[in-house]
Structure formats: C-alpha cells, structure tokens
Amino acid sequence: MTSGMRLPLYWRVCLINGLLFVVGTMALAFLPVTVSARVLVSEAIVLVLGLTAIVGLNSLLLRTSLAPLDRLVRMMDEVDLQRPGQRLPEGRSGVATKLVRSFNAMLTRLETERGTSNAKALAAQEAERHRIAQELHDEIGQSLTAVLLGLKRLSDRVPAELADEFRLVQETTRAGLDEVREVARRLRPGVLEDLGLHNALAALATEFSSHGMRVRRVSSPGLAPLAPETELVIYRVAQEALTNAARHSGATEVEVSLLRQGNHVVLGVEDNGRGFRGGAEGGIQEGAGMRGMRERALLVAGELRIGPGQRGGVRVELRVS
C-alpha cells in the first residue's frame, strides 16, 4: 500500500481539492485563456465548462474515496449476528480498506464470542432443565404417588355421603401427577437419549396429534447417526415449531420431515395454518421462540430458514451437516 493510501481521510480530501485548484490555476496561467472586464459569452462558456469539469472530477474522486464508508454505515444498520457470514468486500487499497477490514474482523470476533456464550448459556439451560425434571419426577412425582396410594387404602373406609368428593380428590391428584410427568418429560426428552432421534420425533408427533392437530411424519431411511448435540438441537427446533403451530397458527395439519439432502440432514416442519402477518423476513415477525431456534441452529453450524409454506402456513427448515 502506498504512503498516500495511508493518509487520514481529512488530508486525502484536502489533497484532492488542492490538486484540482492547482490544475485550474495552471490552466489559467499557461493556456491562452483570458477574461475581459465585461465577460463575453464565449468566455462565460469556458468558465462554466471549467467549473463543471472541476466539480465533476472532485465529486468523482470523493465518491470513490467515500463510497466504502457509505456501505459500511448501511452494513452497521442492517447487520444481524443471528445470520452470520455478512461481510463487506475489502478491496485492495483505499482510504476505507483498513476500516472495512477491521469491521469484518470485529464481526468475526463478535460471531465467535456470541456462539461461545450461546453454547454455554444453552448448555446451562439444558442442565437446569434436566435438574428440574429430575426433581419433579423424584420428589413431587413420588409425593403425589404416595398420596394416591394413601387415598386408595382409605377408599374402603370413606362414608357413602363423601364417596363422590373422595373420588374427585383421587382424580384431581391423578391428573396432577400426570401433568407433573408430562412437564418433566418435556423438560428432559428421555426418549431422545434412550431411543434416538426418530423415536423422539415420533413421540412428539403423537403428543401434538392428541391436541387435535394431525401430524404427519416423513423421513429418509438409513440416516447416518448424528452427534448428540446436533440431535438435541433438531429435537428442540421441532418441539418449538410444533408448539408455535399448535398455539398460534390455527393449523389442522402439520408435516414433520427429516431427510437427507446431499451432505446435509434437513428437518422441516410445515403447517397449513394462517401464517404470519407483517414483520421482517418474508413477512414474519420473529419472537423469542424463533430467536431461540436460530441461536440453537448456530450452535451446530446449522442454517435455519423460516418462511411461508406451500400450503399457506409456515415452514421451519433446519439444515445441518
């Protein structure tokens, strides 16, 4: 890089303008051009053309120097760390090259630090879910089970006039125990650890089908085993997508697919609901659940796409290697 390219922007602008004024002065000094006391039309034309040339050349030189700064400002306004890989072209030389290179390096550092912090936060979140699920199962679940056994032993000694109320207490306790087990199961997908990803997704489909929404599964046979953290991300993204479809979309049908496409495994969750109205990407307003899905995808270097589906609803697609 030449020494001129290392000059601060202020001095670059001064040199450009100074050079143009020197050229104009030299032209007036050495060219056979004069200006009468009363400016003639031909002289006015020469002056206008000269001024236009100076202003145009000055604008061109300044635009060349400052255009990378405009691109940098736009990138600062639009950059989203949840969509990594956004970079500005650095070029070989120019006053803004060093600034653009530093900005790109900063983005790389921020993406790395964000990925590391997200990984730690989500690992802590999974560990906390595991602990809470274990406590629900071992403490509250066992306590409710003991209450149910005690109520069963007392059932033969309950007066007839209290029998209906007693059965209501039994059913309420049993329903509470079922809810505790369901919450624990959602917090810690034991089926994923014990039976694998396909069976875990099948269990998810069965669970949400019982809520009045038909869930259809499609999968490629013989998928190669994935890393445990990748399987967990796929499971959590599918779980969140199904939850969104059940709560917000008004869908009656959802398709959950897990397919091999080249060197990638692709999870797709597509519903036939009302879709999204207004928002950023593809008309979608992203909430905490979607941002959480994106953060999980980044942990395994995956690519998450959320957009309109072919049946009018929403399609969530996660692509991992």
Score class of each variant (00 low, 15 high):
Gly4Val: 15
Gly4Lys: 10
Met5Glu: 14
Pro8Gly: 05
Trp11Phe: 13
Val13Ala: 15
Leu15Ser: 10
Leu15Gly: 09
Leu19Phe: 12
Val23Arg: 05
Met26Thr: 14
Ala27Cys: 07
Phe30Asp: 08
Pro32Thr: 08
Val35Arg: 06
Ala37Asn: 10
Ala37Gly: 12
Arg38Ile: 13
Arg38Glu: 12
Val39Lys: 05
Leu40Phe: 07
Ser42Leu: 12
Glu43Thr: 08
Ala44Pro: 01
Leu47Cys: 10
Val48Trp: 10
Gly50Met: 10
Ile54Leu: 14
Asn58Glu: 12
Ser59Gly: 09
Arg63His: 09
Arg63Gln: 07
Leu66Ile: 13
Asp70Ala: 15
Met75Arg: 15
Met75Gln: 14
Asp77Phe: 12
Gln82Glu: 13
Gln86Ser: 01
Arg87Ser: 06
Glu90Asn: 00
Ala96Val: 02
Thr97Glu: 11
Leu99Glu: 11
Ser102Asp: 15
Ala105Glu: 13
Ala105Pro: 04
Thr112Pro: 00
Glu113Asn: 09
Gly115Gln: 02
Thr116Tyr: 02
Ser117Gln: 08
Ala121Val: 03
Leu122Glu: 14
Leu122Arg: 10
Gln125Lys: 06
Glu126Asp: 09
Glu126Phe: 11
Ala127Arg: 05
Arg129Gly: 09
His130Ser: 11
Ile132Tyr: 12
Ile132Thr: 14
Glu135Tyr: 12
Glu135Phe: 10
Leu136Phe: 13
Leu136Ala: 05
Glu139Arg: 10
Gly141Thr: 03
Gly141His: 00
Gly141Glu: 01
Leu144Asp: 05
Leu144Lys: 04
Val147Leu: 14
Val147Tyr: 04
Val147Lys: 00
Gly150His: 14
Leu151Trp: 00
Leu151Thr: 03
Leu151Lys: 01
Leu154Arg: 08
Leu154Ile: 06
Ser155Gly: 06
Val158Asn: 04
Pro159Asp: 00
Glu161Tyr: 11
Asp164Leu: 11
Gln170Leu: 08
Glu171Thr: 13
Thr172Leu: 09
Thr173Phe: 00
Arg174His: 12
Gly176Tyr: 01
Gly176Pro: 05
Leu177Ala: 14
Asp178His: 09
Asp178Phe: 07
Glu179His: 10
Glu179Tyr: 03
Arg185Asn: 02
Leu187Met: 08
Leu187Asp: 02
Gly190Met: 09
Leu192Ile: 00
Asp194Ile: 09
Leu195Asn: 12
Ala200Gln: 00
Ala203Ser: 08
Ala205Glu: 06
Ala205Ser: 15
Val215Met: 03
Val215Trp: 01
Arg216Val: 13
Ser219Glu: 15
Ser220Cys: 07
Gly222Met: 11
Gly222Glu: 15
Pro228Phe: 02
Ile234Lys: 01
Tyr235Trp: 06
Asn244Cys: 02
Ala245His: 04
Gly250Asn: 04
Glu255Ile: 09
Val256Glu: 04
Gln261Tyr: 06
Gln261Lys: 12
Gly262Gln: 06
Asn263Ser: 11
Asn263Tyr: 07
Val265Asp: 01
Val265Trp: 07
Asp271Pro: 08
Gly273Trp: 07
Arg274Asn: 02
Gly275Arg: 02
Phe276Ser: 06
Gly279Lys: 04
Gly282Glu: 09
Gly289Ser: 13
Arg291Ser: 03
Met293Asp: 01
Arg296Phe: 02
Val300Asp: 03
Val300Leu: 01
Val300Trp: 01
Val300Cys: 02
Gly302Glu: 00
Glu303Gly: 03
Arg305Asp: 14
Ile306Val: 15
Gly309Tyr: 04
Gly312Asn: 02
Val314Ser: 03
Leu318Cys: 07
Leu318Tyr: 06
